[in-house]
Computed example of a mutant assay.
Amino acid sequence: MAEATRNIVLHVSDVHKRFGGLHALSDIDLEVEEGKTHAIIGPNGAGKSTLLNVIVGRLAPTSGAVVFDGQVLTGRKPHQINQLGVARVFQTPEIFPDLTVLQNVMAPAFAKRDGAFRINIVRALDRETEIREEAEAILDDVGLIDRRDSHAGALSRGDKRRMELAMCLIQHPRLLLLDEPTAGMSRHDTNTTIDLLKKIKARGMTKVIIEHDMHVVFSLADKISVLSGGRIIAEGLPDDVRNSPKVQEAYLGGAHRLEAH
């Protein structure tokens, strides 16, 4: 009975991706439950970022399909997928370096309404105050309110990543994809980001996280899928994955347990 009530918001169905002779993804079947945090982990070169790029439309799968909230994403352009409620924080932050931090966070809110980052300034004016106030509240949440008038290009890498997270949050996505969200951050900033992501989860947002830091993974994940060689080799609850011999072999040659430090 419990299985029937699960709401699968994202389904990656039998996805393959080839680059010439390289089979980067094979037989990927993945279900992400609404309101949950689903982590995707694996050694370098396992296919994690390729999978996220397929989900958001940056790469077309060789075969298979991606379905979000009952709608097929395969064949849609990235901005169309974003308009459906899917937002992504990239491994390398994608920002407007010549704008201020506040302007960076406000811009996606206008684009979300006007579509494909075509911002109608005249129409935008009637909501500017509302959007500014929301952007400032989100910057406060991510710890950047004191930098709101700074040029984004002058931020540290860790602060750029937090700003990009704010740029996603102001869009009110139904699904948030995070590719190495704490890369380049100190342990203090990493823990602050973990606390923020827990707060976001409490509001009901579904998240898919790719992360190398096991401290982050085991602090946040409800479910973990492990990629190795472009295939899912293990999947389950964090404790099950932590103790899986297959996972230990993929990461460490079976010599050690996978631990959060």
Rank of each mutant, 00 (worst) to 15 (best):
T193L: 01
P181N: 00
N7G: 06
V122P: 14
K199T: 09
L165D: 08
R132V: 09
G35L: 05
D146C: 08
E259Q: 14
V142G: 10
R162T: 02
I8K: 00
L175H: 07
G70M: 03
N82C: 15
I41F: 05
H11C: 11
L258A: 07
V101W: 07
D69P: 11
R113N: 14
L139A: 05
H256E: 14
G153A: 13
G236Y: 07
S26L: 13
D179H: 10
A109P: 02
Q80K: 09
K77M: 10
A255M: 13
P78N: 14
D195F: 05
L252E: 02
V142F: 01
N53L: 12
M163Y: 08
F19Y: 10
R132T: 13
G45Q: 11
R113G: 07
D189S: 06
R88I: 02
F90W: 07
K112R: 10
Q171F: 08
M205N: 09
S13Q: 13
Q71A: 11
Q83F: 01
A255F: 01
Y251C: 12
C168Q: 12
S219P: 04
H261T: 10
G254V: 00
P43M: 00
V89K: 06
L237K: 15
A111C: 04
D14Q: 09
R6D: 13
S219G: 12
L125M: 13
V226Q: 00
I145G: 12
L220D: 04
N120S: 11
N120L: 11
N53D: 00
E134S: 11
A46I: 09
V217Q: 08
T62A: 11
I200P: 10
T206A: 05
L176E: 06
G143E: 03
A24V: 04
V67I: 09
K17R: 01
K207A: 06
R6L: 15
A202H: 06
A152L: 14
G153I: 05
N104W: 05
L139H: 13
Q103R: 12
I119D: 04
G115K: 10
R18G: 13
E31A: 14
K246W: 13
D222P: 10
T50A: 09
E128T: 15
P238I: 00
L175K: 03
A234L: 06
G57C: 06
